[in-house]
Design a protein around this nucleic acid. Structure first.
Lengths: 163, 163
DNA sequence: TGAACGCGGACCAATTCGGTCCTGATTCAA
DNA sequence: TTGAATCAGGACCGAATTGGTCCGCGTTCA
């Protein structure tokens, strides 16, 4: 239930790569595809998606390629993944339109709303520079614990409203 | 990327229902299917899956049905969902067999291992009684923060080993 | 002017998923 | 003892998704 799509994996690898091994900050699709052993055609689409999401800037023509549009520290994990994941919610009860396939009396909706908020919160502060070193990732997770603590007060209030 | 399968949703609803509205603690497939508006055939398979997982006990014959094999407080969210989710890891890098489709030098594996452990940890203490009341769920999330704090020390050690 | 490059639509094969259908095998109750 | 109720589970199906390929276009630089 947590698995990201293949495209998301490629996107994560791409951002990682560009943050680390970029020559002059610019990498072409072909170059990246060969270096990371990813099918070029699909990688092209992935990078296009990242560009549309504002994470990359593109330069056409000879010598062109992609470049990170901002430092990795300012790119969130969810930013990279979102363009390739149709929805980030835990249940269909809680889709992007806020709607629910099932009847209006689905007993799963309210608890799932809380759960979903909790999960997203855990990920929202995860930035891509942490993927360059496990140490940073672990350190973040620890910091996130305190962030979650304060965030929980809001959810608690919401839940009280929901009954 | 977080969405559970339809079967998992049905399973969650079923457990919820049986914990709450069960007559004599026993509920038949037909009964539950009608009450919760779920296709009977598929619900049957879901309940079979839950039984195989040891969460339910079945009684055949007239007047039979399913019953929770232990109190909801002792049933974890992941227990309910796992029979219907092929793998609980975030990336294919980190599948059930510990293997990776890609080459041995996938730069995603190590950070994802940490991330995956973190996510699973967040869910592992989530029990089904919390789904009966948002208050409990929120309360748990708060408690979980402190649990995560201690758990992080272990992951930190692991990450140090991983480099 | 042409090669290098991004852009993106059309298409495809394989898998997954939600769901149905059908045939047992048990067990209880009349 | 018979039959209805109930679980058990295999076979199958259509639709959607996914991962991937192919191809043609537009742009830009050398």
């Amino acid at each position: 239930m947590f698995k990201v799509s293949r495209k998301s994996e490629y996107a994560l690898i791409a951002v990682q790569h560009m943050a680390r091994r970029a020559r002059d900050g610019v990498t072409s699709v072909a170059e990246l595809a060969q270096a990371e052993n990813i099918p070029p055609d699909i990688l092209a689409k992935v990078l296009q998606g990242l560009k549309r999401a504002g994470l990359l800037t593109a330069a056409k023509g000879a010598g062109g390629g992609y470049r990170l549009s901002r430092p990795v520290q300012e790119i969130q994990f969810l930013d990279v993944v979102r363009p390739f994941e149709e929805q980030l919610s835990v249940v269909t009860c809680q889709n992007d339109h806020g709607g629910c396939d099932r009847g209006g009396d689905c007993t799963l909706r309210d608890p799932m709303k809380v759960l979903n908020a909790f999960v997203l919160r855990q990920f929202s502060n995860l930035t891509m520079d942490m993927f360059l070193s496990p140490h940073k990732l672990v350190h973040h997770a620890r910091a996130d614990v305190t962030i979650a603590e304060s965030a929980l007060h809001r959810w608690s209030a919401e839940a009280d409203v929901a009954g």
